[in-house]
Amino acid sequence: MPRVSQTVFAPWDDPTEKPLIRFQNVTKRFGTFVAIDDLTLDIYEREFFALLGPSGCGKTTMMRMLAGFETISEGKIELAGQDIGHVPPNERAVNMMFQSYALFPHLSVWDNIAFGLKRDRKSKAEIDARVDEMLKLVRLEKFARRKPHQISGGQRQRVALARSLAKAPKLLLLDEPLGALDKKLRQDTQFELMDIQETTGTTFVIVTHDQEEAMTVASRVAVMDEGRIMQVATPAAIYEHPNSVYVADFIGDVNIISGQTNASGTDTYRLSWAEGQQPVTATSDITFSEGQKAHLAIRPEKIRISTDQPVDADNKVQGKVLDIAYLGNLSTYHVELPGGQVIKAQTANTRRIARRDITWEDPVWISWNATAGVMLAE
Protein backbone atom coordinates (compact mmCIF):
# COMPACT_ATOMS: atom_id res chain seq x y z
CA MET A 1 0.00 0.00 0.00
CA PRO A 2 1.20 3.56 -0.68
CA ARG A 3 2.49 5.61 2.20
CA VAL A 4 0.20 8.32 3.51
CA SER A 5 1.84 11.73 3.44
CA GLN A 6 1.61 13.74 6.66
CA THR A 7 1.33 17.06 4.80
CA VAL A 8 -1.33 17.92 2.27
CA PHE A 9 0.12 17.99 -1.25
CA ALA A 10 -1.63 20.78 -3.14
CA PRO A 11 0.87 22.99 -5.04
CA TRP A 12 -1.95 24.12 -7.37
CA ASP A 13 -3.41 26.07 -4.41
CA ASP A 14 -0.12 27.91 -3.74
CA PRO A 15 0.28 31.02 -5.92
CA THR A 16 4.06 31.02 -5.30
CA GLU A 17 4.51 27.53 -6.82
CA LYS A 18 5.77 27.45 -10.41
CA PRO A 19 4.26 24.73 -12.61
CA LEU A 20 6.53 22.07 -14.13
CA ILE A 21 4.38 21.92 -17.27
CA ARG A 22 2.45 24.79 -18.83
CA PHE A 23 0.06 24.48 -21.74
CA GLN A 24 -0.65 28.03 -22.90
CA ASN A 25 -3.49 28.46 -25.43
CA VAL A 26 -2.45 25.26 -27.20
CA THR A 27 -4.34 24.25 -30.34
CA LYS A 28 -3.63 21.18 -32.46
CA ARG A 29 -5.20 20.67 -35.87
CA PHE A 30 -5.10 17.70 -38.18
CA GLY A 31 -6.21 19.31 -41.44
CA THR A 32 -9.56 20.93 -40.63
CA PHE A 33 -10.12 18.75 -37.53
CA VAL A 34 -9.37 20.50 -34.23
CA ALA A 35 -8.02 17.85 -31.84
CA ILE A 36 -7.01 20.30 -29.07
CA ASP A 37 -8.92 23.56 -28.82
CA ASP A 38 -7.15 26.57 -27.19
CA LEU A 39 -6.13 24.57 -24.12
CA THR A 40 -4.47 26.14 -21.06
CA LEU A 41 -3.32 23.92 -18.17
CA ASP A 42 -0.67 23.84 -15.42
CA ILE A 43 0.79 20.60 -14.00
CA TYR A 44 3.10 20.72 -10.96
CA GLU A 45 6.24 18.87 -9.92
CA ARG A 46 5.63 15.53 -8.13
CA GLU A 47 2.02 15.43 -9.32
CA PHE A 48 0.36 12.24 -10.48
CA PHE A 49 -1.88 13.90 -13.05
CA ALA A 50 -4.61 12.07 -14.99
CA LEU A 51 -6.02 13.02 -18.39
CA LEU A 52 -9.43 11.34 -18.47
CA GLY A 53 -12.00 11.20 -21.23
CA PRO A 54 -13.65 9.12 -23.93
CA SER A 55 -11.85 7.96 -27.07
CA GLY A 56 -11.14 10.86 -29.42
CA CYS A 57 -11.32 13.58 -26.75
CA GLY A 58 -7.69 14.69 -27.34
CA LYS A 59 -5.94 13.26 -24.26
CA THR A 60 -3.43 11.14 -26.23
CA THR A 61 -2.73 14.07 -28.57
CA MET A 62 -1.86 16.20 -25.51
CA MET A 63 0.53 13.51 -24.30
CA ARG A 64 2.15 13.12 -27.72
CA MET A 65 2.73 16.90 -27.89
CA LEU A 66 4.42 16.73 -24.47
CA ALA A 67 6.61 13.87 -25.67
CA GLY A 68 7.47 15.70 -28.91
CA PHE A 69 5.77 13.21 -31.27
CA GLU A 70 3.27 15.86 -32.42
CA THR A 71 3.93 19.52 -33.22
CA ILE A 72 1.73 22.31 -31.88
CA SER A 73 -0.44 24.26 -34.34
CA GLU A 74 -0.79 27.27 -32.01
CA GLY A 75 0.26 28.22 -28.49
CA LYS A 76 3.16 27.10 -26.32
CA ILE A 77 4.17 24.22 -24.04
CA GLU A 78 6.78 24.84 -21.34
CA LEU A 79 8.65 22.24 -19.30
CA ALA A 80 10.49 23.61 -16.25
CA GLY A 81 10.28 27.11 -17.73
CA GLN A 82 11.67 26.09 -21.16
CA ASP A 83 9.60 26.32 -24.35
CA ILE A 84 9.83 22.75 -25.67
CA GLY A 85 7.82 23.30 -28.88
CA HIS A 86 10.87 22.78 -31.12
CA VAL A 87 12.93 20.49 -28.86
CA PRO A 88 13.27 16.99 -30.42
CA PRO A 89 11.80 14.07 -28.38
CA ASN A 90 15.23 12.59 -27.55
CA GLU A 91 16.41 15.90 -26.05
CA ARG A 92 13.44 16.37 -23.69
CA ALA A 93 13.65 15.37 -20.01
CA VAL A 94 10.55 13.30 -20.71
CA ASN A 95 10.00 9.57 -21.06
CA MET A 96 6.93 7.75 -22.32
CA MET A 97 5.60 4.33 -21.36
CA PHE A 98 3.30 2.77 -23.93
CA GLN A 99 0.33 0.47 -23.38
CA SER A 100 2.12 -2.31 -25.31
CA TYR A 101 5.21 -1.87 -23.02
CA ALA A 102 7.44 -2.23 -26.17
CA LEU A 103 10.00 -4.44 -24.42
CA PHE A 104 12.81 -6.00 -26.47
CA PRO A 105 11.89 -9.73 -26.57
CA HIS A 106 15.50 -10.92 -27.14
CA LEU A 107 16.89 -8.96 -24.16
CA SER A 108 16.70 -9.96 -20.50
CA VAL A 109 14.79 -7.89 -17.95
CA TRP A 110 18.15 -6.47 -16.78
CA ASP A 111 19.20 -5.50 -20.32
CA ASN A 112 15.80 -3.99 -21.13
CA ILE A 113 16.15 -1.67 -18.13
CA ALA A 114 19.79 -0.88 -19.00
CA PHE A 115 19.09 -0.15 -22.67
CA GLY A 116 18.66 3.65 -22.45
CA LEU A 117 21.58 4.00 -20.05
CA LYS A 118 23.88 2.11 -22.44
CA ARG A 119 22.81 4.35 -25.31
CA ASP A 120 23.75 7.35 -23.18
CA ARG A 121 27.20 5.76 -22.76
CA LYS A 122 27.07 5.63 -18.98
CA SER A 123 29.90 3.79 -17.24
CA LYS A 124 29.43 0.11 -16.36
CA ALA A 125 29.43 0.95 -12.64
CA GLU A 126 26.75 3.62 -13.14
CA ILE A 127 24.60 1.28 -15.22
CA ASP A 128 24.94 -1.61 -12.76
CA ALA A 129 24.01 0.59 -9.81
CA ARG A 130 21.05 2.22 -11.56
CA VAL A 131 19.59 -1.04 -12.94
CA ASP A 132 19.92 -2.70 -9.54
CA GLU A 133 18.16 0.29 -7.98
CA MET A 134 15.32 0.06 -10.54
CA LEU A 135 14.95 -3.72 -10.09
CA LYS A 136 14.64 -3.19 -6.34
CA LEU A 137 12.13 -0.37 -6.84
CA VAL A 138 9.80 -2.59 -8.90
CA ARG A 139 10.60 -5.73 -6.85
CA LEU A 140 11.97 -7.79 -9.76
CA GLU A 141 15.48 -8.59 -8.49
CA LYS A 142 14.85 -12.35 -8.86
CA PHE A 143 13.74 -11.98 -12.48
CA ALA A 144 16.69 -9.95 -13.79
CA ARG A 145 17.95 -12.67 -16.16
CA ARG A 146 14.58 -13.73 -17.55
CA LYS A 147 13.27 -12.70 -20.96
CA PRO A 148 9.94 -10.82 -21.25
CA HIS A 149 8.05 -13.95 -22.43
CA GLN A 150 9.13 -15.76 -19.22
CA ILE A 151 7.36 -13.33 -16.86
CA SER A 152 3.71 -12.34 -16.31
CA GLY A 153 1.88 -9.36 -17.81
CA GLY A 154 2.03 -7.49 -14.52
CA GLN A 155 5.78 -8.10 -14.24
CA ARG A 156 6.32 -6.92 -17.85
CA GLN A 157 4.44 -3.76 -16.95
CA ARG A 158 6.87 -3.18 -14.06
CA VAL A 159 9.89 -3.79 -16.32
CA ALA A 160 8.58 -1.15 -18.74
CA LEU A 161 8.12 1.23 -15.81
CA ALA A 162 11.65 0.57 -14.50
CA ARG A 163 13.11 1.15 -17.97
CA SER A 164 11.16 4.42 -18.29
CA LEU A 165 12.42 5.66 -14.91
CA ALA A 166 16.03 4.48 -15.29
CA LYS A 167 17.17 7.74 -16.92
CA ALA A 168 15.50 9.79 -14.13
CA PRO A 169 13.23 11.89 -16.37
CA LYS A 170 11.58 15.01 -14.96
CA LEU A 171 8.33 13.76 -16.43
CA LEU A 172 6.98 10.28 -17.17
CA LEU A 173 4.05 9.92 -19.56
CA LEU A 174 1.93 6.78 -19.22
CA ASP A 175 -0.45 5.94 -22.08
CA GLU A 176 -3.16 3.54 -20.80
CA PRO A 177 -0.37 1.69 -18.91
CA LEU A 178 -2.65 -0.86 -17.25
CA GLY A 179 -4.93 -1.55 -20.21
CA ALA A 180 -3.54 -5.03 -20.86
CA LEU A 181 -3.98 -6.26 -17.28
CA ASP A 182 -7.01 -8.03 -15.80
CA LYS A 183 -9.19 -6.15 -13.30
CA LYS A 184 -7.69 -7.57 -10.09
CA LEU A 185 -4.10 -7.06 -11.28
CA ARG A 186 -4.95 -3.55 -12.48
CA GLN A 187 -6.17 -2.63 -9.01
CA ASP A 188 -3.03 -4.02 -7.32
CA THR A 189 -0.78 -2.33 -9.88
CA GLN A 190 -2.48 1.06 -9.40
CA PHE A 191 -1.25 1.14 -5.79
CA GLU A 192 2.23 0.00 -6.89
CA LEU A 193 2.34 2.86 -9.41
CA MET A 194 1.36 5.35 -6.72
CA ASP A 195 4.02 4.02 -4.37
CA ILE A 196 6.74 4.14 -7.06
CA GLN A 197 5.73 7.66 -8.12
CA GLU A 198 5.91 8.86 -4.52
CA THR A 199 9.27 7.12 -3.92
CA THR A 200 10.93 8.58 -7.04
CA GLY A 201 9.27 12.01 -6.89
CA THR A 202 8.89 11.93 -10.68
CA THR A 203 5.94 13.79 -12.15
CA PHE A 204 3.57 11.26 -13.75
CA VAL A 205 0.97 12.16 -16.36
CA ILE A 206 -1.35 9.25 -17.15
CA VAL A 207 -3.82 9.00 -20.03
CA THR A 208 -6.80 6.77 -19.32
CA HIS A 209 -10.45 6.30 -20.21
CA ASP A 210 -10.93 4.31 -16.98
CA GLN A 211 -12.49 6.70 -14.44
CA GLU A 212 -11.88 4.33 -11.52
CA GLU A 213 -8.17 4.21 -12.38
CA ALA A 214 -7.92 8.00 -12.64
CA MET A 215 -9.78 8.50 -9.35
CA THR A 216 -7.52 5.98 -7.58
CA VAL A 217 -4.06 7.11 -8.67
CA ALA A 218 -4.26 10.82 -9.43
CA SER A 219 -3.57 13.87 -7.30
CA ARG A 220 -5.71 15.78 -9.85
CA VAL A 221 -7.86 14.75 -12.79
CA ALA A 222 -8.57 16.69 -15.99
CA VAL A 223 -11.86 15.56 -17.56
CA MET A 224 -11.73 16.15 -21.31
CA ASP A 225 -14.26 16.30 -24.14
CA GLU A 226 -13.74 17.20 -27.81
CA GLY A 227 -10.30 18.75 -27.30
CA ARG A 228 -11.31 20.87 -24.32
CA ILE A 229 -10.81 20.47 -20.58
CA MET A 230 -14.20 20.45 -18.87
CA GLN A 231 -12.90 20.44 -15.27
CA VAL A 232 -9.58 20.05 -13.44
CA ALA A 233 -9.75 19.15 -9.75
CA THR A 234 -8.87 16.53 -7.16
CA PRO A 235 -10.74 13.21 -7.52
CA ALA A 236 -12.91 14.05 -4.48
CA ALA A 237 -13.82 17.49 -5.85
CA ILE A 238 -14.61 16.11 -9.31
CA TYR A 239 -16.90 13.48 -7.77
CA GLU A 240 -18.62 15.60 -5.13
CA HIS A 241 -18.61 18.97 -6.93
CA PRO A 242 -18.78 18.44 -10.72
CA ASN A 243 -19.11 21.70 -12.63
CA SER A 244 -21.39 20.38 -15.40
CA VAL A 245 -23.81 17.59 -16.25
CA TYR A 246 -21.14 16.16 -18.58
CA VAL A 247 -18.57 15.78 -15.77
CA ALA A 248 -21.17 14.50 -13.27
CA ASP A 249 -22.35 11.91 -15.79
CA PHE A 250 -18.84 10.87 -16.90
CA ILE A 251 -17.51 10.26 -13.38
CA GLY A 252 -19.27 7.45 -11.56
CA ASP A 253 -23.00 6.81 -11.43
CA VAL A 254 -25.36 9.75 -11.12
CA ASN A 255 -29.03 10.70 -11.20
CA ILE A 256 -29.94 13.91 -13.04
CA ILE A 257 -33.25 15.59 -12.18
CA SER A 258 -33.99 18.57 -14.45
CA GLY A 259 -36.51 21.32 -13.86
CA GLN A 260 -37.23 25.00 -13.19
CA THR A 261 -35.86 26.77 -10.11
CA ASN A 262 -37.62 28.90 -7.50
CA ALA A 263 -35.65 30.54 -4.69
CA SER A 264 -36.62 29.22 -1.27
CA GLY A 265 -34.28 31.12 1.04
CA THR A 266 -30.53 31.82 1.13
CA ASP A 267 -28.70 29.33 -1.13
CA THR A 268 -31.79 27.07 -1.17
CA TYR A 269 -33.99 26.37 -4.20
CA ARG A 270 -37.13 24.46 -5.07
CA LEU A 271 -36.87 22.57 -8.34
CA SER A 272 -40.14 21.87 -10.17
CA TRP A 273 -39.37 18.64 -12.02
CA ALA A 274 -42.60 16.79 -12.86
CA GLU A 275 -46.25 17.76 -13.22
CA GLY A 276 -48.30 16.84 -10.19
CA GLN A 277 -45.19 16.21 -8.06
CA GLN A 278 -43.89 18.22 -5.13
CA PRO A 279 -40.83 20.32 -6.07
CA VAL A 280 -37.56 18.99 -4.68
CA THR A 281 -35.42 21.11 -2.35
CA ALA A 282 -31.69 21.61 -2.97
CA THR A 283 -28.94 23.90 -1.73
CA SER A 284 -26.49 25.55 -4.12
CA ASP A 285 -23.37 27.75 -4.01
CA ILE A 286 -24.27 28.90 -7.53
CA THR A 287 -26.99 31.56 -7.87
CA PHE A 288 -29.93 30.66 -10.09
CA SER A 289 -32.52 33.12 -11.36
CA GLU A 290 -36.26 32.58 -10.88
CA GLY A 291 -37.60 30.05 -13.39
CA GLN A 292 -34.11 29.16 -14.71
CA LYS A 293 -33.60 25.64 -16.03
CA ALA A 294 -31.33 23.65 -13.72
CA HIS A 295 -30.13 20.09 -13.24
CA LEU A 296 -29.80 18.40 -9.87
CA ALA A 297 -27.06 15.72 -9.87
CA ILE A 298 -27.32 13.19 -7.04
CA ARG A 299 -25.12 10.13 -6.55
CA PRO A 300 -27.04 6.84 -5.95
CA GLU A 301 -25.34 6.25 -2.58
CA LYS A 302 -26.79 9.57 -1.33
CA ILE A 303 -30.35 8.32 -1.91
CA ARG A 304 -32.11 6.22 0.72
CA ILE A 305 -34.69 3.58 -0.18
CA SER A 306 -37.38 2.23 2.17
CA THR A 307 -40.74 0.51 2.15
CA ASP A 308 -42.12 2.96 4.73
CA GLN A 309 -42.62 6.67 4.11
CA PRO A 310 -39.70 8.57 5.69
CA VAL A 311 -40.61 11.26 8.18
CA ASP A 312 -37.45 13.38 8.43
CA ALA A 313 -36.30 13.71 4.79
CA ASP A 314 -36.05 17.02 2.90
CA ASN A 315 -37.16 15.20 -0.25
CA LYS A 316 -39.22 12.04 -0.63
CA VAL A 317 -40.91 10.49 -3.65
CA GLN A 318 -42.81 7.24 -4.02
CA GLY A 319 -42.00 4.87 -6.87
CA LYS A 320 -41.77 1.25 -7.96
CA VAL A 321 -38.71 -1.01 -8.17
CA LEU A 322 -37.92 -1.84 -11.82
CA ASP A 323 -34.53 -3.52 -11.49
CA ILE A 324 -32.01 -4.58 -8.86
CA ALA A 325 -28.29 -4.93 -9.56
CA TYR A 326 -26.58 -7.03 -6.89
CA LEU A 327 -22.83 -6.31 -6.89
CA GLY A 328 -21.85 -8.22 -3.76
CA ASN A 329 -20.84 -5.31 -1.57
CA LEU A 330 -23.58 -3.06 -2.99
CA SER A 331 -27.09 -3.31 -4.34
CA THR A 332 -28.39 -0.71 -6.81
CA TYR A 333 -32.16 -0.28 -7.04
CA HIS A 334 -33.67 1.26 -10.18
CA VAL A 335 -36.86 2.99 -9.04
CA GLU A 336 -39.44 4.32 -11.51
CA LEU A 337 -41.10 7.55 -10.35
CA PRO A 338 -44.51 8.93 -11.41
CA GLY A 339 -43.97 10.38 -14.88
CA GLY A 340 -41.50 7.66 -15.87
CA GLN A 341 -38.13 8.97 -14.60
CA VAL A 342 -35.90 6.21 -13.21
CA ILE A 343 -33.74 7.00 -10.16
CA LYS A 344 -30.93 4.78 -8.88
CA ALA A 345 -30.55 4.27 -5.12
CA GLN A 346 -27.62 2.34 -3.69
CA THR A 347 -27.31 0.47 -0.40
CA ALA A 348 -24.31 -1.24 1.17
CA ASN A 349 -24.79 -4.96 1.86
CA THR A 350 -23.36 -4.92 5.35
CA ARG A 351 -25.24 -8.03 6.50
CA ARG A 352 -25.55 -11.46 4.96
CA ILE A 353 -29.21 -11.89 4.09
CA ALA A 354 -31.03 -14.88 2.65
CA ARG A 355 -33.98 -12.83 1.40
CA ARG A 356 -34.31 -9.23 0.26
CA ASP A 357 -36.50 -6.76 2.14
CA ILE A 358 -37.20 -5.03 -1.17
CA THR A 359 -37.72 -6.86 -4.44
CA TRP A 360 -38.92 -6.26 -8.02
CA GLU A 361 -42.23 -4.40 -8.52
CA ASP A 362 -42.34 -3.36 -4.83
CA PRO A 363 -43.71 0.11 -4.06
CA VAL A 364 -40.95 2.04 -2.27
CA TRP A 365 -40.00 5.50 -1.06
CA ILE A 366 -36.77 7.18 -2.06
CA SER A 367 -35.51 10.12 -0.04
CA TRP A 368 -32.51 12.45 0.20
CA ASN A 369 -31.36 15.60 1.98
CA ALA A 370 -31.30 19.07 0.41
CA THR A 371 -27.48 19.04 0.59
CA ALA A 372 -27.12 15.60 -1.07
CA GLY A 373 -26.99 16.83 -4.68
CA VAL A 374 -25.26 19.48 -6.77
CA MET A 375 -27.27 21.99 -8.79
CA LEU A 376 -25.83 22.60 -12.25
CA ALA A 377 -26.71 25.17 -14.87
CA GLU A 378 -25.59 23.08 -17.85
Rank of each mutant, 00 (worst) to 15 (best):
T261Y: 05
E176N: 07
Q211C: 07
E192G: 10
A144L: 02
N112H: 06
R119E: 14
R146Y: 11
I353T: 06
N95G: 04
E378V: 04
L137M: 14
G276R: 02
K183I: 12
I127D: 05
K59N: 09
I84E: 02
H241W: 03
G201V: 07
D37R: 05
E176I: 02
S258D: 05
G291K: 10
S152P: 07
F143A: 14
T71R: 12
A237T: 12
Y246V: 07
Q155T: 10
V342C: 12
P54L: 13
T347M: 03
L193G: 09
I43L: 07
F49A: 02
F115G: 12
E45P: 04
I324Y: 03
P300H: 08
D120E: 04
G58P: 08
D253E: 13
K344D: 11
G116K: 04
M65G: 02
Q318D: 03
E141C: 06
R299V: 06
D14M: 04
G373R: 11
D210I: 04
H209W: 09
E74S: 14
T202A: 15
A162V: 11
Q190R: 15
R156E: 00
W110Q: 12
V254L: 10
E45N: 07
R22W: 01
D188P: 05
S367L: 11
V8M: 10
I343D: 06
Q309P: 03
V87K: 00
P148A: 14
E17H: 10
R64P: 00
K124E: 14
I196E: 12
F23I: 04
N315E: 12
Q157A: 00
L178P: 12
G56Q: 06
E226S: 13
D42N: 13
Y326V: 05
D13Y: 01
Q211V: 08
A180E: 14
A125F: 01
R146H: 14
Q99F: 09
T359S: 15
L117W: 07
T189C: 07
D111G: 14
A160S: 13
A263H: 06
A325E: 15
L66N: 08
R156Y: 02
I127N: 05
A35G: 15
Q150Y: 03
T40P: 01
P11T: 07
D308K: 01
R146M: 11
L165E: 15
G81L: 08
L193K: 10
W365I: 12
R156W: 01
F49S: 09
M230H: 03
M65W: 02
P300T: 09
I238M: 04
G276K: 07
M1G: 15
I298M: 11
A297P: 11
G340L: 06
I21K: 03
D225C: 06
T189P: 03
N90W: 01
P242S: 15
V34A: 06
L174T: 11
S264E: 11
I21M: 05
H149W: 04
P177A: 13
A233Y: 03
E275F: 01
H334K: 10
V217W: 00
T202H: 02
L327H: 11
V254I: 11
I305A: 00
W365F: 13
L140F: 01
Q24F: 01
S258T: 14
L137D: 06
V138M: 00
D128C: 00
F115I: 09
I256S: 02
R22S: 15
T199A: 12
A348F: 09
K18Y: 03
F288M: 14
F250I: 04
Q260C: 04
Q260P: 00
